[in-house]
Computed example of a mutant assay.
Amino acid sequence: MPEIIELPERPYAGVRATITMTTFGVVADRIGELFGWLAERGATPAGAPFLRYDAINMPEDRLVVEAGVPVTAPVEGEGDIFAGTLPAGRYATVSHHGHPDQLFGVIDGLVKWGAEQGLTWDMTEKDGTEHWGCRLELYNTDPSIEPDPANWDTDLQFRLA
């Protein structure tokens, strides 16, 4: 069941790409690289890696997505790896156990629940593109420990306006 939580600002290191629904690997496959980059700099991860959806245009199959790793203290970016901060605020959140391919239904359920609750997302729409203030999928399962995606745990966190 979804719930509303209050979260503080959270620093992270990330990469960003414009992708399609079939090219998620362009950004998602860089999460391991981010962990290595942080380790080389002595930076400590502070939670689960995530995908952050900045812009979504489903009719044109174009998404602007970040892969990120939260850190205990801000880091300085280098090359296409940048330092960012997830904004503080109220978030609607829900957990999912199972294959990431099943997240479409979970997302749909969260959006419908938000509408039933009268919630307003931190999102604006322009020319068919949704621009999100902060929409996250946090991947709580380490694939090197649990290689079967059917056993993965994912949290959704969508910031409220």
Results as ranks from 00 to 15, higher is better:
D61T: 04
R62L: 09
R62A: 11
L63E: 06
L63F: 15
L63W: 12
L63I: 07
E66L: 12
G68S: 02
G68W: 09
G68T: 06
V69F: 09
V69T: 04
V69R: 05
P70N: 11
V71T: 05
V71I: 05
V71L: 06
T72Y: 12
T72V: 13
A73P: 09
A73N: 12
P74G: 10
G77H: 09
G77V: 07
E78H: 09
E78Q: 09
E78R: 13
G79C: 07
D80S: 09
D80T: 03
A83L: 11
G84F: 12
G84K: 06
T85H: 12
T85C: 13
T85K: 14
L86G: 03
P87D: 01
G89R: 00
R90N: 12
R90E: 14
Y91I: 00
A92W: 11
T93A: 10
V94R: 14
V94S: 08
S95Y: 13
S95C: 15
H96F: 08
H96K: 07
G98M: 04
H99Y: 05
H99L: 06
Q102V: 03
Q102Y: 03
Q102L: 13
Q102R: 15
L103T: 01
L103E: 01
F104K: 11
F104V: 14
G105C: 05
G105L: 05
G105H: 04
V106W: 00
V106H: 13
V106Y: 12
I107Y: 13
I107F: 13
I107H: 07
G109C: 04
L110E: 01
L110F: 04
V111M: 14
K112N: 15
K112W: 14
W113Y: 04
G114H: 06
G114S: 11
A115Y: 10
A115N: 14
A115K: 15
E116S: 03
E116M: 07
E116I: 04
Q117Y: 04
G118E: 07
G118H: 02
L119N: 04
L119C: 00
L119P: 03
W121P: 10
W121R: 10
W121A: 01
M123V: 14
M123H: 08
M123L: 07
E125H: 10
K126E: 14
K126C: 11
D127Y: 07
G128A: 01
G128R: 03
G128E: 06
T129N: 00
E130A: 14
H131E: 05
W132C: 01
R135Q: 04
L136C: 02
E137I: 00
E137N: 10
E137M: 01
E137T: 09
E137Y: 02
L138Y: 04
N140W: 15
N140Y: 12
T141P: 04
D142E: 05
D142G: 13
P143C: 10
S144A: 15
E146L: 08
D148I: 01
